[in-house]
Design a protein around this nucleic acid. Structure first.
Length: 1143
RNA sequence: AGUCCCGUAGCUCAGCUGGUUAGAGCGCUACACUGAUAAUGUAGAGGUCCCCAGUUCAAGUCUGGGCGGGACUACCA
């Protein structure tokens, strides 16, 4: 407790950051902000777990500022805001880090390092940067509970995941299937989309592409195509991967696309040929002028390819037509070689007919399944179903295939020449880029067989494996899926209830994504992650999905009984004891779970499916897993689910936001979060992505250390809407420091300086609002408007708007107008109502600003709050973050007052401008200004602020000029807003007529309050509100004009005015001398001034005034002053000697 | 390729449901002020509101189509 408001020598936000941080830690303010709200309504926030194996960057400050701001705001509103920190600990980035650290590759795992050792290394590695993360959290003032974070590798966390998976399994939403996935034959592993999106993975490559002819089978269905034909008819289709042609089992057409039959020649063999392709793409294969060429002029290999369009078909009409297998090496089992329809077929490239190889394309696989088309499958010598290409990237060698299968399905004679060949040269160590590729070999073969229509090189973008640098294949792999498509409609419905910021992300990016949802591929062939808790018999007929450790331990016991296991690896674990110690006795990770063999109901051995699950399931399940639900906390679940609010980067839209939503929908038929803010990226100041590699990344610690967190947070919040990318410019932080924090600090310092002198401590009665001067009521009105706007903005999750409004209030209104105009009220003199009101008003503004801004700038605002409160004890809380968010008083908001103060500001600004033009210093008083008044309301408004204007511009009088004198020149403008709807098209003419009105017309208009004009044939009666009439000029005077307000300045100087001006000059010089001499503001002085002709009269006349203003005990004009002990000053070019001495 | 965001002064951004003179800050230039002073104020210069078409009496604002930057998802003939 103190009786003085703290005054500071310097303003150092970095130091304040450290001091307040220390104080919060000692005081445990964060926990108090929750404990004091115990029992209050909860506001639920979920923390998206960062991965602690990466260092935090400046963009994390962005996302966390948003999170923190709204949690603090809700706390100040009285909610209990629990927020549990969490760590995302599984997944590929961790594995990669470990491999780099240990200098090993995937191939070493299981050979040179055991899975147990490998995973132990991951477990250690993943928490590598937790210190840094915790430090950043503290320094940036992000209040999140780090005492008991959820950690995704924790066995209890995994147990909840298993519970959820088994729940889904029981609902029939978990299934094993195969899908086409990116696969790197060179590395022998599937790749995640994350890996594919590593920089540089997509590269332009030049490949041999082929447009090939599929011969139509003539039958009843295809008869339409053969009308008028004697020879064969072909479908033509284009492919960038000719090596997939032997696996072709269907052709797809667009149902609404128009196709044409074209008679022409095969350009390689010269054989007459009839082909079918999309009408729009005829021009891509044939030159229009060649349509005129006579077929008899055709030469094989020549540049001219004559053609004739015969007839047209709709894609839908072609569906079902059969064609002969293009490359009959392997016979598929099942329906194949017919035309199907697909919505994805376009006429943008190719022929509008798409070659479908279900084993090598995701789209192909999907449409083939929908149409019941069989994929081209081989059986290997282990009896497994395989695509034509093996996992090393070559066509299966005949000896690697099942002999029975070869006998029944393979045309050995044709296939043997190609068997064993790699589909990309990059996979074959004996080949280089210059060697012909398999694509070329196949194309050559097709040319010879009259099956190729066009073969050419084509450059396209193709993904490469980031580890081997070799191209990837799309390859069918077995995976476990969650049937998210089954709840798609429900997810869409629930999504509509979520408040997305910005809304477009919810309806657009996320909404569209849901519309096109596919089943969630859960499988990952990795080591460090949550194991899939599914055990299967070898033949796959029996399965068990384990939902808890209790269940697993029970199953182990049964397996031991059956003799399949010798010992229980989880011995000592006590079921139902939820302590960390107990759960640390076991490990649910690989390889331990892999060693567990269970027994099926029929007594068969069951082995765990070796997959791990997608790490996104880990994070998406956090609402449940952070509570270890349902093994613990079943009672609190309803209080912490769903979340009221979450926020992350926009890149999480299809990541965390999706998995949260999907899991909550499937498990609880509920949303997982009610409001979500997705923020944009933080780019460098040139708009480039930040990266350590480019060296343009900004270190958050350095930045906070230099500037403090508050300006950083403020800058990030107010510079751009959160969903816009932020071009991060360090100068912007400095600007915020000066503009906002500097101004606020200066305002406080000003307040503290004088409040301490006057001993103000807010112990006096509150000055009644009506008794406060105009200026005070004005700023209080604005303050209440501000509280309203800021409250609404926070409520609407718009901190940008809130911050900008606060900044505007502090900079423009509070500091630049209220304080500037009020300064004299605080100087000297006794405490009276006016002075008290000035203090109370300023105090109220500062205190409320502290509260309003606290969610965004928590450090400085807490200091400001406490500095203000230390003396007054008006607040019972020790921290602004424990205080209650202010509410506004509608009764104090006075729009008319705000408007007239605006007039005062405009008039002042204009007069100051006139003074500058005439080189009349503000210090020189002038006699009057003249203001034309066109209506009473304006005069009333002016009169209310007259004193303020006079003081601000230093004139003695305001003269109101009414119309009657006829000295005012007026201007009239049409009011488009009222005229527009009434007269529409006549607007232009009306505007012309109005603008052309004379002074007499205007006068007549005003008198009659209506005016008739003729436009074309129409007579139009204008009403007063159809126009705006304002003053423009007062002929003969020095006039300024702005926004309809006109003001004239009388620049005549009388002797009296001049003398007063001189007196003011003296005051100014004396004040400067006082300051230069380092006198205290309260020191009394004696003044001696050397006699001069020019100024004696002024000095004599205003001696008291000067003494008063400068705290002079005496003021004497003397004949002579010693230059050494006096100051030489210059007033209007005349030198004067003056001595100012402390009394 | 699809979806979404962004495009307004040299830079960073406002501009609400369309209304006729498009704003602010920074920077630049000039001036002023000086008991808030390593502050502050005022003014000036600076605009093809990305382009084209449309709707309308009226378009920075609405519609369509492009272009450019970014993000995500996908990669398919």
């Amino acid at each position: 407790m103190s009786n003085k408001f703290p005054e500071y020598k310097q303003f150092n936000l970095s130091q304040i950051n450290k001091d307040i941080q220390k104080w919060w830690e000692e005081d445990d303010t964060f926990h108090k902000s929750m404990s004091t709200r115990e029992g209050k309504p909860t506001f639920v926030f979920y923390e998206g777990p960062p991965s602690a194996n990466g260092q935090p960057g400046i963009h994390h400050v962005m996302a966390r500022t948003i999170k923190d701001t709204f949690c603090r705001y809700k706390t100040m509103q009285g909610f209990l805001v629990k927020r549990k920190a969490g760590w995302d600990t599984h997944g590929l980035p961790v594995e990669l880090g470990v491999e780099k650290l240990l200098g090993i590759t995937k191939e070493d795992i299981g050979k040179n390092i055991t899975v147990a050792e490998y995973n132990a290394a991951c477990r250690k590695e993943v928490m590598k940067y937790t210190d840094q993360w915790e430090e950043l959290t503290r320094q940036m003032g992000y209040w999140v509970n780090m005492d008991d974070p959820y950690i995704t590798y924790d066995n209890r966390y995994i147990e909840t995941l298993w519970h959820l998976l088994s729940k889904l399994y029981k609902k029939g939403m978990l299934y094993k299937g195969y899908t086409i996935q990116p696969f790197s034959p060179a590395a022998g592993t599937g790749l995640s989309s994350h890996e594919l999106n590593q920089p540089g993975c997509y590269r332009d490559v030049k490949d041999t592409t082929a447009t090939v002819q599929f011969k139509v089978v003539r039958n009843e269905q295809s008869e339409q195509l053969f009308e008028g034909e004697e020879g064969d008819v072909h479908f033509v289709a284009w492919t960038t991967t000719p090596w997939t042609l032997p696996s072709n089992t269907a052709l797809a057409v667009g149902p609404k696309v128009t196709y044409v039959k074209v008679r022409t020649f095969n350009p390689y063999t010269g054989t007459p040929s009839t082909v079918v392709l999309a009408k729009d793409l005829v021009k891509a294969y044939f030159k229009a002028e060649h349509a005129e060429v006579d077929f008899s002029e055709y030469e094989v290999g020549g540049k001219v390819l004559p053609y004739e369009v015969i007839s047209e078909f709709k894609g839908a009409d072609l569906a079902g037509i059969s064609y002969e297998q293009l490359i009959p090496w392997v016979k598929p089992d099942g329906d194949a070689f017919r035309v199907i329809t697909g919505d994805f077929v376009t006429t943008e490239d190719g022929t509008g007919i798409v070659h479908i190889a279900p084993t090598f394309g995701a789209d192909d696989d999907r449409v083939a399944k929908q149409s019941g088309i069989a994929p081209l499958i081989m059986i290997d010598n282990e009896g497994k179903r395989q695509p034509m290409v093996d996992r090393t990237g070559k066509f299966f060698a005949i000896e690697d295939l099942d002999a029975d299968f070869v006998a029944s399905n393979v045309n050995v004679e044709a296939y043997k020449e190609y068997a064993g060949m790699y589909v990309k040269n990059a996979y074959d160590n004996n080949l280089t880029e210059k060697d012909p590729t398999l694509d070329v070999h196949i194309s050559v073969m097709l040319k010879k067989e009259n099956k190729a229509f066009k073969v050419e090189k084509h450059t396209h973008n193709y993904p490469h494996c980031w580890r081997t640098d070799k191209p990837i294949l799309y390859y069918p792999l077995d995976s476990w899926f969650i049937r998210t498509t089954a709840v798609r409609d429900r997810m869409i419905e629930l999504n509509k209830t979520i408040n997305w910021k910005p809304g477009s992300t919810g309806t657009g990016r996320f909404g569209n994504w849901l519309e096109n949802l596919v089943d969630w591929n859960l499988s990952r062939s990795r080591y460090w992650g949550t194991p899939l808790p599914i055990w299967r018999t070898e033949d796959g007929t029996e399965e068990k999905c384990i939902g808890s450790t209790e269940e697993l331990v029970g199953e182990i016991a049964k397996a031991m009984e059956a003799g399949y296991m010798d010992n229980n690896p989880y011995e000592g674990f006590e079921v139902g004891v939820n302590t960390k110690d107990n759960y640390d006795k076991i490990d649910l990770h690989r390889p331990y779970v892999d060693d567990i063999v269970l027994v099926s109901s029929k007594g068969e051995k069951m082995f765990r499916e070796p997959d791990l699950i997608d790490v996104w399931f880990d994070s998406g399940a956090m609402p449940y897993a952070q509570q270890h639900y349902p093994f613990e906390n079943t009672d609190v679940m309803k209080d912490v689910f769903p979340a009221d609010f979450i926020a992350e980067g926009v890149d999480q839209t299809r990541g965390w936001f999706f998995t949260l939503h999907a899991i909550a929908t499937m498990i609880d038929d509920s949303v997982s979060f009610k409001t979500v803010i997705s923020n944009g990226l933080v780019l460098d100041k040139k708009g480039n992505k930040m990266s350590k590699r480019l060296g343009n990344a900004v270190d958050p610690f350095e930045t906070i250390d230099k500037y403090g967190s508050d300006p950083l947070r403020w800058y990030m919040t107010t510079n751009a809407q959160p969903w816009d990318n932020l071009k991060f410019d360090i100068n912007g932080i400095d600007e915020v420091r000066r503009k906002f924090f500097g101004t606020l600090y200066n305002t406080y310092s000003f307040f503290a300086l004088y409040a301490n002198i006057d001993g103000f401590n807010y112990s006096e009665e509150e000055v009644a609002f009506e008794e406060r001067p105009e200026l005070d009521r004005w700023i209080l009105s604005l303050l209440n408007s501000l509280i309203k706007e800021v409250g609404e903005s926070y409520e609407n999750y718009d901190a940008t708007r809130a911050g900008r409004a606060i900044s505007e209030f502090v900079g423009e209104n509070l500091s630049n107008w209220f304080v500037r105009l009020s300064r004299k009220r605080y100087w000297g003199g006794e405490m009276n109502t006016d002075k008290l009101s000035a203090y109370q008003t300023l105090y109220t503004c500062l205190l409320n600003v502290a509260k309003l801004a606290a969610p965004i700038a928590p450090f400085y605002m807490d200091q400001l709050f406490n500095d203000l409160n230390a003396v007054t004890n008006k607040e019972t809380k020790q921290s602004v973050h424990l205080a209650t968010f202010p509410s506004y008083d509608e009764a104090l908001i006075n729009k008319d007052l705000e408007e007239r103060m605006n007039i005062a500001q405009r008039v002042s600004s204009m007069v100051l401008g006139l003074r500058r033009k005439e080189k009349l210093k503000v210090r020189q008083p002038l006699s009057k200004i003249m203001v034309p008044v066109l209506n009473e309301q304006f005069q009333t408004q002016m009169e209310a602020v007259e004193e303020i204007i006079k003081a601000e511009i230093n004139v003695k009088e305001v003269e109101y000029l009414t119309d009657s004198a006829g000295v005012i020149k007026k201007k009239i403008k049409p009011n488009f807003k009222t005229l527009g709807p009434k007269y529409g098209k006549l607007m232009k003419q009306i505007a012309g007529a109005v603008n052309g009105m004379s002074q007499e017309d205007i006068a007549a208009f005003e008198k009659a309050e209506t005016f008739n004009i003729t436009v074309g044939d129409e007579n139009i009666a204008l009403a007063m509100d159809d126009v705006e009439i304002m003053s423009e000029d007062i002929p003969g005077w020095l006039v300024a004009n702005e926004g309809g307000v006109t003001v004239a300045l009388d620049v005549t100087l009388t002797e009296e005015l001049r003398n007063e001006g001189v007196a003011r000059e003296f005051i100014n010089r004396i004040q400067n001398i006082r300051k230069d001499s380092d006198f205290e503001v309260t020191d009394k002085v004696n003044i001696l001034i050397a006699k001069t002709e020019e100024f004696d009269a002024a000095l004599a006349e205003h001696a008291d005034y000067i003494s008063n203003q400068t705290l002079a005990a005496s003021l004497e004009v003397v004949a002579k002053l010693d230059e050494a002990s006096a100051h030489k000053i210059d007033i209007d070019g005349t030198e004067v000697l003056i001595a100012v001495n402390k009394q």
